[in-house]
Design a protein around this nucleic acid. Sequence first.
DNA 1: GTGCTTGCCGAAACCGGTTTCGGAACACAA
DNA 2: TTGTGTTCCGAAACCGGTTTCGGCAAGCAC
Lengths: 364, 364
Amino acid sequence: MGHGGTVLTTNTATLSNDRVAMRVTISDMADALGLTKSTVSRALNGYPDISANTRLRVKRMAEKLNYQPLSHAQAIKTGRTRSLGLVLQLSDHDAQRPFLAEFLAGVSAGASTQDYTLTVASADNDNHLIETFRNLLRDGKADGFILPRAMVDDLRVKMFRDANVPFVLYGRQDNDTGCAWFDVRGEDAMHDAVMHLAGLGHRRIALINGGLIYNYAGLRRRGFLSGMAAAGLTSAPEFIVEDAMTTDDGARIGAQLLDMPNRPTAIVCAVDRVALGVYRAAAARGLLIGSDLSVVAYDGIHEGAHAQPPLTTFAVDNREAGHRLATLLIRRVRGEPPEALRETVAATFLERGSTGPVPREADQ
Amino acid sequence: MGHGGTVLTTNTATLSNDRVAMRVTISDMADALGLTKSTVSRALNGYPDISANTRLRVKRMAEKLNYQPLSHAQAIKTGRTRSLGLVLQLSDHDAQRPFLAEFLAGVSAGASTQDYTLTVASADNDNHLIETFRNLLRDGKADGFILPRAMVDDLRVKMFRDANVPFVLYGRQDNDTGCAWFDVRGEDAMHDAVMHLAGLGHRRIALINGGLIYNYAGLRRRGFLSGMAAAGLTSAPEFIVEDAMTTDDGARIGAQLLDMPNRPTAIVCAVDRVALGVYRAAAARGLLIGSDLSVVAYDGIHEGAHAQPPLTTFAVDNREAGHRLATLLIRRVRGEPPEALRETVAATFLERGSTGPVPREADQ
DNA sequence: GTGCTTGCCGAAACCGGTTTCGGAACACAA
DNA sequence: TTGTGTTCCGAAACCGGTTTCGGCAAGCAC
């Protein structure tokens, strides 16, 4: 019998006749080929004791019947579910919020190209985080994890390194043993931001750096400093402020910087939202962004493009990042060594309206 | 043998000794109890042919050993994975972005209380959407789906209703057969918004409604109209503008309304972001929000609280919504009829700075 | 004591895969 | 011809559960 009567629903707009279109199993494959299911299985999994000829026949038939092994059926023997794990940490304030949709879309798209799926969980504190990871692992809900927002002192990395669980970071890590990652080179962006401003004649350039618990902050500070050095400028310590994450932080610190006797003519922000706070501080002081004060930031959030003036920034493609992270993690799960799984890309500079030549009166 | 040598890692901070802490299986349970695994299984699943006594023993032992059946092992027989599906539609512009983190946190939290997990996928167009749903179903990656953003003419509802796949809507549906849902009563919010404004003396009240493809738009319009009626006011047709979703839309339509010869003294926006656009239009015309022009909106986005003046709005708790949706879907998956699974809650009114008494000169 | 339920559990098949093991078929050398 | 490898596949066990089926023992009526 088998699927003699099954109507092809492949290209209709419906989901199925009854609940789920009758799946084709490995036994169906075996029957159709006149082989046993063990042979079919080994053929598909690349065992060497299968002749090239039958391997080809099997693969063709799989194509034809659109056979796809049931991941949780294989999981019961292999332990792997073809599923990637992602745990959202709510303690992240609203930091990752705007990125999330794009990022998730990228991850799930990357996963699905290799027939993996994405399992999402959330945790609101560190204890809950550990428990969540453990449950997902124990129940085989994830073969490995994507760890967004690499931190300087990252509990997750410690755990997974010890437990030998596959993972990949969004961000980097100083102690890099066992770490695979994808990251955008924020340090290069900060460097280039300074060079851009210096090219416009700015000499008094300040940095408002991001959250110090995150690994990126150190990198971006170094990038800023190397840019200053490359431009032949000295950076006053009071012109470097750390640990700003929100628009309110930006407004507060921006005010502080702009009220200095010898205020900066340009401010580099490690985070777009902070730059929008600087906008507020500038507006409150009657300073025109783009002429009285130049601002360059980093992230490429939507609001930046609609600010007045539009924010000059280094944009990050979070969709792409998610996509790369997914494929890296899959390779990691399949056994590639972490050292081979490290990628970084440059951010894209978007020159918009918030930067301009240094104002006359501030010129030297 | 068994687990004699297993170290209890339960309350240490590590994940496990080697990869995954040795799971306790149903056979371990059977051995420990002197029963067969079939008995253990039936005891846990509430079969009537197990004595109350043994059922209790089994459950106690499960508690003691922290036994939790492997979901994908049961899935191979039962077809259910204890996993909820959520497909993000990217065509939704950036509409759902700010909500997403909170929403996901709620869903996954709700799911995990019942030992369910959340599988997230994404699709960028309708064809891809159908294919994504079908793959998830075919491979048993989800037992049912949460459908965010109910639309007036909702393809997903049609498909799942026909295919008899469990689903639950975030939002409602006119043709409600087979539909379970959770929703916030936006219509009541619009009604109350009008009443609030009318109480402040406003008579010329406009509505900028949201995206017409979504089901909520009709509801909110009706709520606005019923509020106007209840306040004894008549609503001029030119004071009702539909289909605004973005801040830019708000700025454009706001300008249009404010340039009318007999402009509205208050504007109700179905969406917070649109209200922020109205802020821009008002600022460009030198109108002070909260005195020259009152604005009430809906959603409770973060930016609204930080706008100048802070936006008066009806806040939606998306985390809670996600949580409720998850539990509703689980009940649906377990067989409860959809009609019994419908919940709505009220939005919370946040009176902030964007509303005030009608200005004198506009008074009648 | 016999017969018939009823309550309760074990035995075994099953789900859809993977993996080990053994042996048939063939080639080749002695 | 026999012996010795290879090559390649089938048979069967297994993974961790669920579910059907059958039967033992106790209870009850007669």
